[in-house]
Design a protein around this nucleic acid. Structure first.
Lengths: 213, 213
DNA sequence: TTTTGATGTTACCGAATAGTTACATACTTT
DNA sequence: AAAGTATGTAACTATTCGGTAACATCAAAA
């Protein structure tokens, strides 16, 4: 009665059905975004009765909660690296940024979640919010402790960079040109990365000099 | 038969009804965003039959097109300033950025349009796209000509700044904290502005030195 | 005055929505 | 084997959606 001792496989398997619904949710989101998301579309995508959504998840929000929690999209992007690594700071920061770009660009479902967060506020988006806020703030704290700067507002600079990346990636879903930059191609993004790298170098040397004085 | 020689005022006035529908569209967008936008909601908001939307605008897209074209939200934000002004460049760029922030933050309808552009691609969003792309590219061209930099990719830096501002403003609609920055308050935004200002100063001095050498 | 065309509303259609009730099937326990 | 329980589906309600057809009202032209 407890967990996995059900051997039928096909039907009459609650866990499997739940998983099926969660993954169907992902597919519908991937196909149409959150706007066209609904009980009916998910149930039909899963090939299952929508009653089961209500029975197992309470309502659509419950299912979305389970869906979001089943994905670890925005977890541990180089958080552990920082502070434990042997790399020089500049290189470390660059790799964190580069990884963030790669991660976001290669995860369309995450992109849809971010779009959703821009439009809707509810308990599910609040949950996602909270996780990312925790993680990025923790990372920034480490950075600030190791490389304090009196002249530059590290939090704001990091936020502007992250936000810029966010927006450009999300925007690349509906257009390919932003200020003549091809945000839909790898070339465009390596151009962006390169520029961010030089910015990091520049700022970092300033911080170093400022600290030495 | 031509234009405005209709004196009844109340009913049976096509132009007035059209304007009524366009402004009702704005109110519905302001209230619920583009997701909840529909023929029925707009017609009911305007207090008018939805048949008139089809008759006068063809379909919802036609009405949205008329709505978007009736707003000049993203026009002439300091485009003319650049190149004609007597201000020093640094100050000029700062004022352009500052104006962009103020403009976007104080126009919730524009924010909704930007959210819409992130989610939907159609002829209307393409139209908005095209306008902004034209304007910002023209502005960047002027800037590049007057202050060419071999070491920095001006377009990318400007795009990252704009995009960052975009994202943070849009994000402030559903949350108030981003990396511990209060993006819902004037204080948070003056903090952001101040940081951008120092960035501009820094980059500009580098460009100057690079050019003198 | 009568006719014509534009402006407007009401009422309807089929499809899709969220949510519920009633019933069927299959497995577990007694 | 029988009873009970968990898993599943089909069918139904009520509402809302976009879209259309039929009808009413008003103003200007013949």
């Amino acid at each position: 009665m407890s967990d996995l001792e059900n051997g039928t496989g096909g039907q009459h398997n609650r866990e499997q059905t739940q998983q099926n619904l969660i993954e169907a949710t992902g597919r519908v989101i991937l196909r149409n975004g959150f706007s066209a998301l609904g009980i009916n579309s998910i149930a039909s995508e899963a090939g299952v009765s929508k009653v089961l959504i209500y029975r197992y998840f309470g309502d659509l929000n419950g299912l979305l909660k389970a869906y979001v929690m089943s994905r670890d999209y925005l977890l541990s992007q180089g958080l552990d690296k920082l502070g434990n690594s042997e790399m020089p700071v500049a290189q470390l920061l660059k790799s964190v940024i580069s990884e963030q770009i790669r991660h976001l660009r290669s995860n369309p479902e995450l992109q849809e979640i971010l779009r959703w967060e821009l439009v809707v506020k509810n308990e599910v988006t609040d949950y996602v919010d909270q996780i990312r806020e925790q993680q990025s703030v923790a990372m920034l704290e480490k950075l600030k402790k190791q490389y304090p700067s009196a002249e530059f507002d590290v939090e704001v600079i990091a936020s502007l960079l992250s936000s810029g990346i966010y927006y450009l990636v999300l925007r690349s879903g509906t257009t390919s040109l932003f200020n003549n930059i091809n945000i839909a191609s790898d070339e465009g993004w390596s151009r962006i990365e390169k520029t961010i790298d030089s910015l990091i170098d520049l700022l970092l040397t300033l911080v170093m000099n400022g600290n030495k004085k």
